[in-house]
Design a binder for these strands. Structure first.
Lengths: 250, 250
DNA sequence: AAGTGGTCTAGACCACTTA
DNA sequence: AAGTGGTCTAGACCACTTA
């Protein structure tokens, strides 16, 4: 369990750790705007004196705040409050199978098309590999009960995942299969609302032009692209949720 | 700057700190599936011996992994690898003004309607307050150049933010104004794709039924709701982006 | 040269949880 | 009773950055 400020504040009996007290103090000063962007936080030594604790305890707090993006730390200069350009929230992207099961529906998936072929120029660029490298191109439809739930269009870099060429994806759909077979180190998601094109409309059994949510995800291992996927959901059936509590982020 | 595993791997010269080495080791074991969910990680004492370092150093790493949601820690039981139910990604939600400026367009906003009135039953429930409490109900249109960019429909809990009743929001739109005036401790976002209704279509100058992205955000201060807002963007003009690197999350 | 953060140590005492 | 994590201390040495 992650204990965050929100939770901590509701559990009134729990004696706050020194760490948490210092964290909340500084955090509140920043979030309420008492300490404006550019404000310089007292150096660790001084904070340690103020709170009557060791420098290590203060250091952990301030490091955490830097990780959460509230401040920037630089040697000799000190810790400076950053402008709050963005609210960052934690978006949980669940496995489609789990999503469907969580709705109490029966999950199934179906491979509509599968090919191994050299990457086109555009694809190669997108995946960050040289042209003519082999990729797997897979189209997969996910069902909730008998209803189409999500259309998956995926490219896999066979340099990184050669096993994918021979895989049928019958038991596991490409997403979870890849999670099981490849270590990855970074992912990027783009989320947009669009009107369904002919392909999406046909497979998802919705009218052309009706709103769909498109989630595009690209995954890297070190600096090699592993896979790139576009997930298309009918607008009615899918909502993403993201939460944020500042102290949780660090 | 947050230094994450991805970055670290690309900066080959930088000597890895002990902390980072231990973190990467454990993380890779989990992310590659060598340590399956349920696997029990060696206790801190033993890890400290293995790496020839003090327990404190190990503790910081393992605490960070727990915060990132990769493992669960329990006294006496130890640290257990959690099932990877979700990929979590960090979604940055920018201020609309900044978003527009970043596109090189001129930003402006316009208050279309503003009222102070008692909350309806549904609104009271949504905001988690008793009925008849006063709320501010504001509709605001954001422009990029001369084009409508985003429709904002907002409720503000006047118990928490009494000043909002008298505010005209001419200089600052309600979002940034609230950020400047109220400390908050948690936020929740829901993101969906829908077809534009009559109201949205009219204000955004798009056809009825055309795809829009709807971002609903609710913000709390401790356990009081501060504000609830619905932002509606034409599907064409807006994409959300979320990134993730595992070690960054902690 | 001096201030600041980055990292680490070797210990301590306690709280919680299972047995 | 014993194992494990939670938190904290009082120091250390160094790297970086500004002056």
């Amino acid at each position: 369990m992650i204990e965050d400020a929100f939770t901590a504040n509701r559990m009134s009996e729990a004696p706050l750790s020194l760490h948490r007290r210092i964290l909340s103090d500084i955090e509140q000063n920043i979030l309420t705007g008492r300490w404006q962007p550019g404000f310089r936080i007292a150096p660790e030594q001084q904070l340690a004196l103020q709170y009557g604790c060791s420098r290590m305890t203060v250091n952990k707090v301030v490091t955490q705040l830097a990780r959460a993006g509230l401040i920037q730390r630089r040697r000799k200069v000190g810790s400076v409050v950053l402008p709050q350009k963005a609210q960052s929230a934690i978006l949980e992207i669940y496995d489609i199978r789990e999503e469907v099961k969580a709705k109490g529906e029966i999950y199934s998936h179906q491979i509509l098309a599968q090919a191994v072929r050299p990457a086109s120029g555009q694809e190669a660029q997108h995946l960050g590999l040289s042209r003519k490298k082999l990729i797997a191109d897979i189209t997969c439809l996910h069902h909730a009960g008998k209803q189409p739930y999500c259309l998956e269009q995926r490219l896999i870099n066979l340099d990184v995942v050669p096993d994918a060429a021979a895989e049928t994806f019958e038991t596991l759909s490409p997403g979870p299969w890849l999670l099981d077979h490849v270590p990855w180190s970074a992912a990027e998601h783009r989320i947009a609302a669009r009107g369904a094109g002919t392909t999406e409309a046909t497979h998802l059994a919705i009218p052309i032009g009706s709103p769909v949510m498109v989630v595009e995800r690209q995954t890297w291992r070190l600096d090699q692209s592993v896979t790139s996927v576009r997930l298309t959901y009918p607008g009615k059936s899918h909502t993403l949720t993201a939460r944020f509590t500042p102290s949780q982020a660090g």
